[in-house]
Computed example of a mutant assay.
Amino acid sequence: MLYNVVEIQEILPHRYPFLLVDRITDLKPSEYIEGYKNVSISEPVFQGHFPDHPIYPGVMIIEGMAQAGGVLAFKSMDGVTQEEIQSKVVYFMSIDKAKFRAPVTPGDKLVYKINVIKNKGAVWQLDAKAYVDDKVVAQAELKAMIVDK
């Protein structure tokens, strides 16, 4: 484990119920990151999606992949202090080629694997995949920018 949820909260501004990364398990700055979220029936989203057939929403999977990508972007910035990181946020610019391959349900461990396609200044283009039991459940190309809050 590289970063637990408390350490992730020092990097990302997201908080419950919208912090969607529990751990970062691997990271190579400017190249890739791997992390995960344990999906629990106690997630507030399951009250309405769907009460008798709980399915973790695809948009939440995309957001979780983007949050992992945000950790990668911040941890790839050389010589940046913790105060500077806390004064910035990552904004989505685009989501392309999104595909949902299989449903994610309570009890699943959702593993995010994000690879850098391109980085130019504050803009990051990422190849994002989410897995459950080594099976791709979702994928997308994400573009994001680090900006001042």
Score class of each variant (00 low, 15 high):
G58I: 09
T105E: 15
Y56H: 03
P103D: 06
I11V: 12
E63P: 01
I33C: 00
K129L: 03
F74D: 11
K28W: 07
L126Q: 00
R101F: 07
S76G: 08
V116W: 04
V90Q: 13
P54Q: 03
V132F: 07
E43M: 12
I24T: 05
P17W: 14
V80P: 00
E63S: 01
Y112V: 11
A68Q: 07
D96C: 03
M93P: 08
K135Q: 13
P13Y: 06
P106F: 06
I85Y: 02
E84L: 12
G121V: 02
I95D: 01
V111H: 07
V21G: 14
N38I: 10
P17Y: 12
K120A: 15
F50L: 00
R15V: 05
Q125M: 13
R101I: 13
P54Y: 14
M60D: 00
V39N: 09
E63C: 14
M65V: 03
P57R: 03
A102F: 15
Q82E: 15
S30R: 11
E34Q: 15
G70L: 07
Y91A: 02
F18E: 05
S94N: 09
K118D: 14
V59C: 11
A122C: 09
S30K: 11
E31V: 04
Q67C: 04
P51D: 10
T81H: 12
Q86G: 12
S94T: 12
E84G: 11
M60P: 09
G64P: 00
G48V: 01
A73L: 06
E10P: 03
I117M: 04
V116A: 13
V39F: 12
K97S: 13
D108R: 06
N115V: 02
Y131I: 01
S87F: 11
P106I: 02
G79E: 02
K28A: 14
I62V: 14
S76C: 04
I95W: 04
N115W: 05
L20V: 04
Y131E: 06
D133V: 04
V89E: 15
D52T: 12
K88A: 09
E84H: 13
I55N: 01
A68P: 06
Q47T: 07
D108K: 07
K129M: 06
A128S: 09
I55W: 00
N38T: 01
E31D: 09
Q47Y: 14
G70R: 07
Y91K: 02
K99M: 11
H14P: 00
Y32S: 06
V39R: 14
E63T: 08
Q125H: 13
